[in-house]
Nucleic acid binder design. Structure first.
Lengths: 345, 345
DNA sequence: GATTAATATTGACGCATGTAAAAAGCGTCT
DNA sequence: AGACGCTTTTTACATGCGTCAATATTAATC
């Protein structure tokens, strides 16, 4: 059934005998039009093939109904889960999400920000690339739009809203658990791709000192692997294990993907990390990556409350959108992590 | 340095003393403007803060420079890798990618398609949701835009370009390998969320019959878990193992995520699947999920050529975009899978 | 220095819609 | 019948830029 294609509201108006402004009001909100007209329009639309022109509609409204989201990396289930929760929250609020991935390239991140400005999105949520990023990009967005940073917080930036996990708390919880149940953990760092890397490392050190243990950090110097976290964890521990070191240690990995690499290293050396064996090898992670329950052994970790972070980011953004003018106060929302005790530690 | 904000080309024209049409040409292609003007404009732009309005620019051009991509599911590294390769290919060609995720909901998928039509994207690439999808959505897109289907191909649709893996070849290769090196494999199906599920199943059956073995398919009836593939694999094999069945079988899983669940089930029952133990338990997958090298044991699988699929989809789409009119011939591009022999089978 | 070609500017119109004000239609109540 | 309120239509203008034709300016050529 090839319905006749109609390209403008003008034509549509002629086709179904309703004035164009009425159609305009109908497409924005059918409730703004009388019952009888709604009926007439609805019946008319069934007979033709028409979609309002997105650009033309958005150009004149003060609001575009779009929010822009930038994430640094797609091939990471943590970010995809974050993105999913943002999309759900935004959809519920009637907003369209435009996602751009910076592919761990500051240039692309910058371009994405320009795209958002040029599309006059109502607001932007950004999970920063990390230490290679151009801070001016964030400052620029923050100055011109309702803007919320997410997941990882650049220290130089103040006056910016932020939503993320309280790493002092989350890393503290698992560090404390490991200390309580077995030998004090060593920290296997992740490549310093973003600010969380150092935050977690520092949180570990602080907690250890508080508990009266000596913090030990390994794997912080290697930066070759960038976002290849599993390879990083595997390489560092393979090196250690083959020198006969750390064979009976507790190892807290900076994130679960590093930990998955660590588990692999253990397996290759015939080691079986486990919670039950006091004094033996233990491996723990951070984030609660979706695959944690399926590794062997299942990975003990701290869950980030991804759903809450995404929801809070959207909530805060929309709050700023509806505020008359840029209010001066900036909020920092930190979510607690939840310990997930499984088998590996 | 808070540069003065300028919102229209008109203002910009007044600010730097160059006519508006010249600015328009400059922003489309600086080469269309004389050297001296380029210099003047460039210097002027450094002193003010201006970004052309995306909607206004795109509204009048015949081409928007955008391509729309729909994927069914975000929390799956296969799709994110596909998406990444598409984004890279599109970026190289100077196109902006607008991604929408259907979150395994036909309604959202439909809405995403409408969004693309309304934004008049130059073309659309869609990885179909699956058997719940409304085929008319694809037909509609195909009728009105340069359109390419990707990854999974709905049988009812003809006259549509498609790019994906040749599952007869890929599944055939690993089936043949498993038969050659050990006992003929059983097929652990995945939930029938898309058309690949059945294609692989059929390819397995055909190959087995060709080799003179009896095909056995399990796990096809369970549909509760939908996209929770790992949970599906785990549940089905836990059930089998605890009944003492399949303990020494070769098991070909419909995809790697199912296989990861299968590995977990094996571990829980103290089983160690492995390539070297003829006659013992073996587990293999399909796709070469990025985590395959890090599972214990490392998962033997068939790699889909994700990069090639993404590139081919974009190539084909742009080819259709530049073609004067809709040419009648439709291409089906199938990529070969590559066997990745690791430890598990 | 005059001629020619290339480039720039001006002005005008178009794109598909939002939006506001005024006029017209309709039903209800007195 | 007339006044009132609600909805719709009419009319007109606005949005920010693409694009074209005509004209003005500049540069290059001889």
């Amino acid at each position: 059934m090839p319905k006749p294609e109609i390209h403008t509201m003008e034509e549509l108006s002629a086709a179904i005998g309703v004035s164009r402004p009425t159609l305009s009001r109908y497409f924005q909100d059918p409730a703004k039009v009388s019952r009888s007209s709604v009926e007439r329009i609805r019946r008319g639309l069934e007979k033709v093939d028409y979609t309002p022109n997105f650009f033309a509609t958005r150009m004149n409204r003060k609001t575009t109904g779009m929010i822009g989201v930038i994430i640094p990396y797609l091939n990471d289930l943590f970010f995809t889960r974050l993105l999913e929760s943002i999309e759900r929250a935004a959809m519920k609020a009637g907003y369209t999400v435009i996602t751009q991935c910076s592919h761990s390239d500051p240039e692309i991140e910058k371009r994405a920000a320009e795209t958002f400005l040029s599309m006059s999105v109502d607001g932007a949520i950004v999970a920063p690339l990390g230490n290679h990023s151009d801070m001016r990009v964030y400052e620029r967005l923050n100055a011109r739009l309702p803007f919320v940073l997410m997941d990882s917080r650049p220290k130089p930036l103040t006056d910016v809203d932020f939503v993320g996990t309280d790493h002092v708390q989350s890393t503290g919880v698992i560090t404390e658990y490991l200390c309580r149940v077995g030998s004090p953990p060593i920290f296997l760092a992740m490549p310093r791709v973003n600010f969380n890397a150092l935050e977690r490392e520092n949180a570990y050190v602080a907690k250890m000192e508080l508990l009266g243990f000596e913090p030990v950090v390994i794997g912080a110097e290697v930066v070759r692997q960038e976002w290849h976290f599993e390879a990083h964890g595997l390489a560092v521990l393979n090196d250690q294990f083959s020198k006969g070191r750390l064979l009976e240690s507790s190892i807290l990995c900076a994130n679960d993907r590093v930990a998955i690499g660590a588990l692999r290293a253990a397996a290759q050396h015939g080691l079986e990390p486990g919670a039950l064996r006091r004094g033996g090898l233990r491996i723990a992670g951070h984030d609660d990556y979706p695959l944690c329950p399926y590794t062997t052994p299942a990975l003990t970790t701290v869950a980030q409350n991804v759903a809450a972070i995404g929801q809070a980011a959207v909530d805060r953004l929309l709050e700023k959108c509806s505020a008359e003018k840029q209010s001066g106060n900036h909020a920092i929302t930190l979510m607690d992590g939840v310990l997930k005790i499984r088998e590996s530690a």
